[in-house]
Simulated assay, not measured.
Amino acid sequence: MTPILAALAFATAAAAQPDGCAALSTLIFSGNGGWRAHGAAPAWRVDDGGFAIDDDGARVYDASVESPAFAVPNERGEIVVEHSVDVSWASTAAVLDVSIDGAPWRDFVAAGGRFDGGGYDATSYRGNPLGERAAWGGTTALLTRAVLPRETHGKHVRLRFRIGSGGSGDARAGWRIGRVGCAW
């Protein structure tokens, strides 16, 4: 695990949100319970009020950023993510995973979540470290609205933004995540 330096606050006002939401609206790359980056190269970095990772297309990699745990209310919860994807069509893809009450990571949709906008638009290939699965790919700017799985209600949840490449593509801008917030 390699923490990234610095802390940054997103535009979403933490004071106007319940405690669980505040953990998402402030992004902290540190070893003290904040967001944490994993993967050696390429590395996540702070970029224009968010975080980003480049895709050189030529190397095999698996990199992720994990949120701190946050409490989900007993009713429907929704996560809102502003992000852009510009990755090699040949071998790079990005996904959202979830861990509920410390359980192992699962794909967001496979865990029972759904996208009400800005959902997966590609499939990662077999040679990708992510395996063959639905993902974000290609080139697009998104406002993703992700309805949390019913199983998360009243529990603590962590999110993992994960990108992988099979190393057989061309260099692209990568994945930029500008704001993560919630609606409940």
Rank of each mutant, 00 (worst) to 15 (best):
W44D: 04
A111R: 05
W175V: 12
I28D: 11
A110L: 10
V157H: 01
W35G: 00
Y61Q: 03
P18A: 13
A134F: 05
P3C: 07
R126F: 14
F51V: 03
E78A: 12
R36Q: 13
S91D: 15
T152R: 03
A103C: 05
A90Q: 15
T144M: 05
G39W: 12
A40S: 14
R145P: 00
E75K: 06
G167C: 12
A173N: 12
G20Q: 04
Y61P: 06
V147A: 00
A14E: 14
R126E: 12
G112N: 06
V157W: 03
E82I: 02
D48S: 12
W175G: 01
G117F: 01
D47E: 14
D86G: 05
G118Y: 04
G164Q: 13
L159N: 05
R162N: 11
A122S: 14
E66S: 10
V157G: 06
G39T: 05
C21E: 08
G102T: 06
A13S: 12
V180R: 02
S88K: 00
D55L: 10
Y120S: 04
P129C: 07
G77H: 08
V85W: 06
A63I: 07
C182L: 04
D56Y: 06
I79D: 01
V98G: 00
F51K: 03
A6H: 11
D86K: 09
A69W: 01
F10S: 13
V65H: 06
Y61D: 01
G49T: 07
A14Q: 14
I79N: 00
A171T: 13
R160H: 09
V46T: 13
D170W: 15
V147W: 00
G169S: 07
R179A: 15
A9P: 06
L24R: 00
A13R: 10
D55V: 02
G34Q: 08
S25R: 08
T152H: 03
R158A: 07
F161R: 03
S91H: 14
P73C: 02
N32Y: 04
R160D: 07
T26A: 06
S165E: 05
D107L: 09
S64W: 06
W105N: 02
V109R: 00
A9S: 15
F108N: 01
W184T: 14
F29K: 02
E132Q: 15
T2D: 13
Y61N: 04
A22N: 11
G113H: 09
T152K: 06
G113D: 11
G117H: 03
I100T: 05
S67L: 09
I177D: 06
D121M: 04
D97K: 08
L143C: 06
A58P: 00
F108K: 03
A13I: 13
L148V: 09
D107Q: 13
A173E: 11
T144E: 13
L142E: 09
T26N: 10
G178H: 02
G50A: 10
L142S: 08
T152E: 05
A9I: 13
P18N: 07
P149I: 02
A52L: 10
W44L: 05
I177N: 08
A7D: 12
